[in-house]
Structures are given as C-alpha cells and as structure tokens.
Design a binder for these strands. Structure first.
Lengths: 223, 223
DNA sequence: CTAATTATCTAAAGAATATTAGAATATAGG
DNA sequence: CCTATATTCTAATATTCTTTAGATAATTAG
C-alpha cells in the first residue's frame, strides 16, 4: 500500500486532517466542554455535571477532543483532569462562536434570552473598563466557581461566586457600580448575579466577555 | 410546545447553533470547497472539478454550507455561483487550518509533501516581500487561473497561470528572482510552478500564503 | 415549443456518530 | 489484599451523514 502518491491523495489527506479538528467542533456537547475548559482545567465529573451530561458521555466526547489534539489529560490520584492544549484552541472557539453569532439569526434570538435586554457592557470597552477598575471607580466581580477564578481571571476582579453572593453582599464597596462577568456570552451566571444584585439595590451590569473572549481581544489576564 | 424555557434548554440551543457551523467545517470535501471559495466566487461545476468530486455531491455539500450561512448563492443564466458570505468565514478557515497544522503531526508530514523541502518563503516576511516587490527587486507571480486572480490578488503580483507559464517565460524580467504563490499552503500549483521555473533556470521560490492567508495577516490585497 | 445545459431534489445504501448500559481498569485508603 | 471511587473501554442501538443514481426544475438556444 503505497498511499499518498498522487496529488489528489495528498490533498485528501490534508483536508481530512483539518476536518478532524472541525469534526471535534461539530457537536454541541463538545463545544460546551471546550468552553468550560477555556475557564481552566477540570476533571471529568465536573465537566459532566456542568454540561449536564452523564460521566460516560463526557468521557467519550473528551476522547474525541483528545484525538483531535485539542485537549490534554493529566491524572492526579483518582481524578483525571482535562485542559485545553493551548490558548490557540480557546481562540478558535471564540472565533467559531463569533462567526456563528454573526451569521445565524436563530442563534441571536436564543442568545437574547441569555444576554437579554439592553445595557449590557458591550465588549468593546474592555480597556476603559480596565482603567475604571484600576482607579476603583467600579467593582469587577467574577461569579464563577473559585477554582476557575484561581486559574485565570480579569485584572482587578475579585472572586464572588454566584452561590455565595447573597451572603457576601456587604463585602462590596458601597455606592460603587458593580460589573459581573462569568464564563462568556453563553453563560447564565453573571445574568443571575446582576438580577440578584439589582434586587439588593446595587447598581450592577453584566460584562459579556469571559476570560477566553478577554484574552482573544488581546487584553491581559491575572493568575 | 413552549420550548426554550429552562436554562438547560437555552444553553442547548446556543451550542447547537454554533455546532451547525462546526459541522459545516467537519467534512474534508466541504473544507476544500471553502478554500476554493476563498479565491473568489465560482460556479458549481468549477468547484466540483477542482475538488475532484461529482457535481451532485458538490451541490449537496454546498447546500450544507448554505444552511450554516457560510456561503451565498447567485444565479447567472444557467450557472449558479457560490461565494463566501464574508471575509470572516475565510479567516475562520485559516484559523482552523493553522490550529490543525500546529497540533496534528500527521497533517504536518502530509503537508511536507506539498510544501516539501526547505527554502520556502516563511509566511512571516510578508511586509518585506511587499516592499521588495514594490521596488521591483523581485517578480511576484500568481499562478492560479485568471478568474481567481481577477477577483483578488497580492499587490504587485502579475497573473501567470500555471498552464500558460511555460509559453510565457519570456515575459519574466530577466535576472530577477521570482516568487510564485497560489491558493495557499495546501495548493500544489505554486510548487509545480517553482519546479518548472527552476528547470528553466529561473531563480524561483514559493510563497505559501494564498489571498486568504495574506488577508488574515492583515496585509492588503489588490482587485 | 423542444432540446440541451446546469444544478437541485429525492430516495436509498452504507458508513460514521451519539448515547446508554455493563464490564474492565487504575488509584487510594483501610 | 479488599473495597470504594473515578474513569475508560466495549458492545449495542438509534440516529445522522456521505455518497450515488434517477427524477425534477430552471434557464438558454434554436
């Protein structure tokens, strides 16, 4: 079998290989796993729970991602941790999502249920948000689980996981606007946080970006 | 049917929509069609011939791309022309390819048969190539079919399709190095052109970039 | 109108994928 | 060594995707 001799065979091989990556990104559940991994490394059970699927199915999907070389595995005791191979994969996810958003109307209407309503911080003012946070003119809170905050977060952000937020309201500097962010535009945590804060009388807005979007814009992260 | 109420349902819808784009990019043949469309609009028969598939199959794949909103259709007489919806799609293709190249060893070894051997112009020196071409220190030739050159090409490039090259060797300024490019790293045209030129005693090198890669680098194109 | 060209649609076979359940493997702790 | 835990592997089924062939539709030329 002397494969790979004709131009056609060479080309077929090339596109086939790229399609392996495309195929890895062709399943909704796998995309959700990739987005979770953009937040940092997680073990299989965490991933399965967050994505709302069985541990076995999560394992199968992660295997696919591993075959496409998009994720790396690390065993620690009984737990197996997955992580993105590098930031390029996170960027690819962001590009794919943005491309889909810009094109598919159905996606936009579904997204409107998450982002819902106006006065979200448009993604563009990242730098001004950064300088306002630095000057202490507003409080940036990261409402994801602490483990994700610990791996990477926006500069000047403090960790206030959604499920602790209610009890920790007094930690917020009074009379100062709050900006909450979570895993990205598809994540519901920040939306819930903003609703909770609003009910408590706090002036709160949501930043749609998560760490992956932030980094894809070329903005710095803290660790 | 009051779908789309629970958070889980909303999320599923979102990832499903993005997966539609991922799925469109999960087939080798569709990727090849996308790369061809990066060169400009083409009708179905052209696409089928270039990709080495039947007209029917090409039509079916193009339908998939249309459903994912990646391509647009235009009818002109009996011919149906397809084109990329916008440059963002071309950028996505380039990102996907680069991501795959950086990750999959098999792809790199297959690619080495196309790019083969050393002294290719590394992609990075695009700007210096541009200024050398402007000063007339080297001749840049576009060896793709004229129709593709006509839609977009590198600045200072002249059209010298591969199948006319042999007869038109005398058009090349003598004693000046030639740089040939084609549709991108996966395309064989420029490689063949360089081989042909070398046999004719011309100092020729290949530029791996095609117009999509060139534009994705933020460099200007001519029309 | 008819014939020829170009492309899409429909249907069907075969290949590949998603999902689930049960068995197997690796590790930690007793 | 034995047990519990965390995960992967295997096998099976339902679904979806790719590909081909035949029928159909749209357009142009005569």
């Amino acid at each position: 079998m002397d494969a790979m001799t004709t131009p056609r065979q060479i080309k077929d091989t090339l596109y086939q290989q790229v399609a392996r990556v495309g195929k890895a990104l062709s399943s909704p559940k796998r995309l959700e796993l990739v987005e979770l991994l953009c937040q940092g490394e997680m073990h299989v059970e965490q991933l399965a729970t967050e994505a709302g699927i069985s541990l076995k199915l999560a394992s199968a999907h992660l295997k696919e991602l591993r075959l496409a070389q998009l994720v790396a595995v690390r065993r620690e005791g009984r737990k197996v941790f997955y992580s993105l191979v590098d930031d390029q994969v996170a960027d690819l996810w962001v590009s794919l999502r943005v491309c889909a958003e810009n094109r598919l109307l159905e996606l936009r209407s579904a997204l409107s249920e998450v982002v819902s309503h106006p006065h979200e911080l448009s993604a563009l003012n990242g730098k001004s948000l950064l300088s306002q946070a630095r000057r202490g003119e507003l409080t940036v809170i990261d409402v994801r689980p602490v483990s994700e905050y610990a791996q990477a977060h926006l500069p000047y952000a403090r960790s206030m996981p959604l499920d602790e937020l209610r009890q920790r309201l007094d930690e917020l500097p009074p009379e100062r606007p709050v900006v909450a962010y979570c895993r990205g535009p598809f994540c519901l945590l920040a939306k819930d946080a903003v609703a909770l804060l609003a009910r408590a009388g706090v002036n709160a807005t949501r930043l749609e970006d998560g760490v992956a979007e932030w980094r894809a814009r070329g903005l710095p992260l803290a660790h």
